[in-house]
């Protein structure tokens, strides 16, 4: 420190604010300590007050400051080498199209089909699912978006997908995120390649099975991996859905109730209602040819 007093001199004085004000160092330190303690206590009290007032409810949106701090922290948490990564698909005008198909199948549940966070659960999560067209998101580098999709974001609903995606798939998703601000909803109609693919078009139509007259109707249903199948109980008493090999098992579904299951593995699964012998069905899950070529 410039101007620090020599040992054995007068009471220890220290230059402060350009040297025109001298402060007694031990006193300054103790005051600083008092102030810091007060700040900590006030922050704790404020947090406690907020906790008591709102509990840990998740459907109250965070303030602008909180959002800004959180976004900054997310970006800072990504090593700069990753942030500076360049997309190998930068020149590929069609990359976003493949990303869009993937996005609608796997990401739209939370992010909404168009990436604007308009899904049923987006606003009820904390932190809420962001609008990907938001300037704060678009300001992030391609590398940062890539890192977020790959590694997820702790303390948010964003999972890490590095186990499921290869780099190419993730870069295509980055391309889609870049497309979100200028996206025309009509562009989200299935691409011709997507329609020509029987597995994928089956995937577009979710599976629906009725439990009616103590029977599963249709008795056999075929879907693509990742497509949700819903069983609706139209009988006046409970049924359940139990696969022989233990791949899936609903609790008893009451009269008028429904149960949904999203298969993650391909195969042919026979299932029954354990309450009503003779009531059986088959779920055929087809692999996704379009995804396989990438993996």
């Amino acid at each position: 420190m410039p101007g620090r007093c020599k040992k054995g001199g007068h009471p220890r004085l220290s230059p402060f604010r350009g040297g025109d004000l001298y402060v007694d160092v031990p006193r300054f330190r103790s005051r600083l300590l008092v102030w810091l303690s007060l700040i900590v206590v006030a922050a704790a009290a404020g947090s406690w007050w907020m906790l008591r007032r709102h509990g840990l409810v998740s459907d109250q949106p965070p303030g602008r400051l909180e959002t800004a701090i959180a976004r900054r922290l997310v970006v800072l948490s990504i090593p700069s080498s990753q942030r500076q990564q360049k997309s190998p698909l930068a020149g590929d005008a069609r990359a976003w199209r493949d990303g869009a198909d993937h996005f609608q199948e796997h990401c739209a549940t939370c992010h909404g089909n168009d990436g604007r966070g308009g899904s049923a659960i987006a606003k009820k999560m904390f932190p809420p699912v962001p609008d990907l067209a938001d300037p704060g998101i678009q300001a992030m580098s391609d590398g940062a978006l890539f890192a977020i999709i790959s590694n997820g974001v702790r303390w948010t609903g964003m999972p890490a997908f590095r186990q499921e995606h290869n780099a190419d798939e993730t870069w295509k998703l980055v391309a889609f995120v870049r497309r979100v601000p200028g996206l025309d909803p009509r562009e989200l109609m299935p691409s011709p390649a997507h329609q020509a693919d029987p597995g994928a078009s089956a995937g577009a139509a979710p599976g629906a099975v009725a439990m009616d007259g103590t029977a599963f109707t249709p008795a056999e249903v075929t879907v693509a991996v990742g497509t949700t199948v819903t069983w609706t109980n139209k009988d006046p008493f409970p049924h359940n859905v139990t696969s022989g090999r233990g791949h899936f098992h609903s609790q008893d579904v009451p009269a008028g109730g429904r149960w949904a299951f999203t298969p993650r593995a391909a195969g042919r699964f026979d299932y029954v209602c354990t309450l009503h012998p003779g009531m059986h069905g088959t779920l055929v899950v087809q692999p996704k040819p379009s995804k396989r070529s990438n993996e």
Binding site: D212, G213, T214, D235, F237, H276
Partner: peptide, 11 residues
């Protein structure tokens, strides 16, 4: 509609 349930109960 309810007949198959009675069959299932019997089984």
């Amino acid at each position: 509609k309810v007949r198959p349930a009675f069959v299932a109960h019997l089984e």
